[in-house]
Each structure stands twice: as structure tokens, then as C-alpha cells.
Amino acid sequence: MPGITREEVAHLARLARLELKDEELDHFAGQLDDIIGAVARVSEVADQDVPPTSHPLPLTNVMRADEVRPSLTPEQALSGAPAQEQQRFKVPQILGEE
């Protein structure tokens, strides 16, 4: 199994929206390389013909009836907002798609 490079860590941090500092990148790259080296063992079973388990219990079809339940009040909904305006969450300018 390949290890992980500092550049990869930087890329992952961008994907995960973490503005890591340079020294953190160095630090984490080393630690993550160790961890990945250890956990890569799971690929020992990669070829085995066993189904993956995503859920610990074999439940299926848990659904609710299409019935309206009370919502929060807008005051409650916005109670934790770092900023608000016109009963809406106020956020910094959004880049990207229109």
C-alpha cells in the first residue's frame, strides 16, 4: 500500500474545507502515513467474496407516513445563526455556481 504525501494531505484538507497551516500539514502527513500504513491491513480481505456491511442490523423499509409535523419557529431555526437578516441565514458571499 502506498503511503500518503504532504501534497495529498493538502488536497484532502481542501476537499474537507480545512485551512491547515504549514506546520500542521507536515505534522499530519507524518502521522497519517503511520495510521494508513497500519489500517491498510484491511485490504488483506479485498479479494474475499464477502458482502460489505454498511449497517450493523439487517433492518429494511423503515419509513414514515407522509404526515406534516410541527416545524421549528423561525426564531428557533435561526437561534444559532452567526448572522441573520430578513428571517434568513446571512452568509458571506458564495463563490462558484450560479
Partner: peptide, 29 residues
């Protein structure tokens, strides 16, 4: 055109005042 959202019981009626049809689930609390 369901009465409620896909994963919570909030109403889907159009034209409601902003953030009056939200709950912990659809706000991602």
C-alpha cells in the same frame, strides 16, 4: 408533490415565509 419533505415531517407548501418550514433534520442541526 408530497405533503412533507423526504426525510422529515416539515410541510412542502410553496410560498411560506422564509425558514418557517424547517426542523432540526432539514436544517442539518
Amino acid at each position: 408533490g408530497t405533503k412533507t419533505k423526504m426525510f422529515c415531517g416539515c410541510s412542502t407548501t410553496l410560498g411560506a415565509d422564509a425558514n418557517t418550514q424547517t426542523c432540526p433534520t432539514c436544517l442539518g442541526l
